[in-house]
């Protein structure tokens, strides 16, 4: 309702490490979580985002501003998303996917999870375990059996020396 008055409304978002960010409401409501707060009239003061740290939130806001500046052209939006995510490392992507999930931003969620999948494509099983913090609960025999069953999928995988 406030948006109809003509002057762009600005929201203040606060990360869980107490950093404050100003962002145009029109960009911020890409997040369904934030949009619901605005629609319920709960966005007047500072909006605390308990699950997002400052570094990640800064990144998400860059994305919000960037993508909302692009008119309805799916091609251009896609190339913006690709460029935006191109230089992000795995840890940043993991933080972003959590933030996108919490903020309920389906376009960012889709793009980041697809990017993580792309990063994983040639990575070894050991790399995946380390990065996702997963404990190998197979016995060596069980692991060998699963591996043998899908031997062809181990073609072209990077060697496991990346820490």
């Amino acid at each position: 309702m406030a948006a109809e008055t003509g002057t762009p409304t600005t929201l203040t978002l606060k990360s869980n490490d107490d950093e404050l960010f100003s962002v145009a409401e029109s960009a911020a409501i890409l997040s369904v979580t934030i949009r619901n707060m605005v629609e319920d009239g709960c966005a007047g003061g500072v909006i605390p985002l308990d699950n997002v740290d400052g570094k990640t939130l800064a990144s998400v806001i860059t994305y919000m501003n960037g993508i909302s500046a692009i008119p309805a052209d799916e091609e251009k939006k896609k190339s913006y998303r690709d460029k935006f995510l191109s230089d992000k490392d795995f840890e940043t992507l993991a933080d972003m996917v959590l933030a996108a999930n919490y903020l309920n931003m389906s376009c960012l969620m889709d793009a980041v999870s697809a990017k993580i999948a792309q990063v994983m494509e040639k990575k070894s099983v050991g790399w995946v375990r380390r990065k996702f913090g997963i404990e190998n609960d197979y016995t060596p025999e069980e692991e060998a059996a699963v591996k043998e069953e899908h031997k062809w999928t181990f073609e072209g995988v990077e060697t496991d020396d990346d820490n």
Binding site: K122, D137, T153
Partner: peptide, 13 residues
């Protein structure tokens, strides 16, 4: 191919 390879990651995967 990558999906199936990741069956080897853990039992839950």
């Amino acid at each position: 191919n990558c999906l199936l390879r990741n069956k080897t990651v853990s039992k839950s995967w």
